[in-house]
Structure formats: C-alpha cells, structure tokens
Deep mutational scan, measured.
Amino acid sequence: MLEGKVKWSNSEKGFGFIEVEGQDDVFVHFSAIQGEGFKTLEEGQAVSFEIVEGNRGPQAANVTKEA
C-alpha cells in the first residue's frame, strides 16, 4: 500500500488526484474509495491505496482514508 494526500477532488464529477511524494500524481475515481455511504475525499486528506493500470494509465484502487 502507498500513502499520499488528496491533491484535489471533485465530488460532482466523481474523481480527483492523490499526491505521492517523489512520484507523479495518481488519478482516483470515487468507485475506488472503500467504505459505506457517500464516498468523498477532502483536499489534503491522508489516504492509503494501491496502484492499478486503468484505461488511461495508472490509477488508485482500494483507497482508504487515514484517521
């Protein structure tokens, strides 16, 4: 699992980007967020995730919010 911080997200469009130190930003779709209820990410929020190869390149999977 990698750790990063949410660079920005748009809940209306359903995606955002995660900033990882020393690496390119990672695309995240809201379907990759683990948990119940409305899935949102806040700018600056710490997250853990895996990287998978998506249709348009690397993207985050199994995203969990850190406490």
Score class of each variant (00 low, 15 high):
M1F: 13
E3G: 10
E3M: 15
K5Q: 07
K5I: 14
K5H: 10
K5D: 00
V6K: 01
V6S: 00
V6M: 06
S9F: 15
S9Q: 07
S9P: 00
N10M: 06
S11A: 13
S11Q: 14
E12Q: 13
E12P: 07
E12Y: 12
G14D: 03
G14I: 06
F15M: 03
F15L: 04
F15V: 03
G16Q: 02
G16A: 13
G16H: 03
G16L: 04
F17C: 07
F17R: 01
I18S: 01
E19T: 10
E21I: 11
E21F: 12
E21K: 12
G22Q: 04
G22V: 01
G22R: 04
Q23Y: 14
D24K: 14
D25F: 05
D25W: 08
V26M: 03
V26S: 00
V26F: 04
V26L: 08
F27G: 00
F27M: 02
F27V: 01
V28M: 07
V28Y: 14
H29R: 06
F30W: 10
F30V: 06
S31T: 09
S31Y: 06
A32H: 06
A32F: 06
A32E: 07
A32V: 07
I33T: 03
I33N: 03
I33K: 00
Q34M: 12
Q34S: 10
G35H: 06
E36P: 12
G37H: 08
G37D: 09
F38C: 14
K39S: 09
L41W: 04
E42I: 13
E42W: 13
E42L: 12
E43Y: 14
E43N: 13
G44H: 05
G44M: 03
G44F: 05
Q45I: 09
Q45V: 09
Q45H: 06
Q45A: 10
A46V: 14
A46G: 09
S48W: 15
S48E: 06
F49R: 00
F49A: 01
I51S: 02
I51V: 09
V52E: 06
G54E: 04
N55Q: 12
R56Y: 13
R56A: 07
G57A: 04
G57P: 04
P58V: 08
Q59M: 12
Q59R: 11
A60E: 02
A61T: 09
N62T: 06
N62M: 08
V63P: 03
V63G: 01
T64L: 11
K65E: 04
K65G: 07
K65H: 09
K65Q: 09
E66A: 14
E66N: 14
